[in-house]
């Protein structure tokens, strides 16, 4: 466990920076988390993905992987990698304040 401070609010995260409690996340925190990951500005396209990650997590208890993300949002995988360069599903989940997507083992 670690602690981070976003917009003046302390939140618990795992060692990689994923939120321990997604309910502590607010939209105002997203730009700061993104900036720390090298994304200077969150465009509407970024927000479409971030909000989708939140919805999916709330509905299913797990964030989608990149293929499901692409198929459901209609955003091509290539573009997802341009928006969230280090791994779209993981990075979007982090910025959206939800736990790291599990994928399958």
């Amino acid at each position: 466990m670690a602690t981070m401070t976003y917009v003046g609010i302390e939140v618990s995260t795992d060692a990689e920076g994923f939120f321990a409690d997604p309910s502590k996340w607010t939209e105002a925190m997203a730009p700061q988390i993104a900036a720390a990951e090298g994304i200077a500005e969150l465009t509407d396209r970024h927000w479409q993905v971030i909000r989708f990650m939140r919805d999916e997590y709330e509905r299913k208890g797990d964030a989608p992987n990149v293929r499901a993300l692409s198929k459901t949002t209609g955003i091509p995988i290539k573009e997802l990698y341009q928006l969230f360069p280090k791994g779209p599903a993981k990075l979007a989940a982090k910025i959206a304040g939800v736990p790291k997507p599990h994928g399958c083992i």
Partner: peptide, 8 residues
């Protein structure tokens, strides 16, 4: 290429 795959 990506998960899921049979017998990872």
């Amino acid at each position: 290429i990506d998960l899921p795959i049979k017998c990872p």
